[in-house]
Amino acid sequence: MHLAYPAVLAVLLFCVGLYGVLARRNAILVLMSVELMLNAVNLNLVAFDVWLRDKLHAGQALTLFTIAVAAAEIGIGLAIVLLVYRNRGSSDVDRLRDLAERPDGSDPDDGSDPNDDTPGRPRPDHRAEAAA
């Protein structure tokens, strides 16, 4: 089989995933797009492993590892999205804008201010009070 087929398919899948990551608003859809990208990589790994006839099967082993890591990622990712949704009432990626600099100190989106909700980070309570 021509190597270009899986390789090009992987490239196209990867770029579709890339588009999804950049364009989707819902965080869960973004996670789906990430899965697409990971699968594109997996496809590449498997194809090259088969092509190279690697004695160690490094490509396939790595694919398995990637799948495992992807499973872990999706679990953690979904947990984070749930947490964000619980605190913010929304899981829209482009509304989580606490990283932006606000010279006037006003909230970008009407009080339901975004925050990057890494779990170790305390919530800025004063903002909520000010908004209330």
């Binding site: 950049l22 364009a23 482009d94 989580l96 990283l99 932006a100 600099e101």
Partner: peptide, 17 residues
């Protein structure tokens, strides 16, 4: 320059890519 700092992660990622 500040206008570039929208806080939108997707914009950052797009620019990075």
């Amino acid at each position: 320059v500040r206008r570039a700092q929208t806080g939108n992660v997707q914009t950052y990622l797009g620019a990075l890519l």
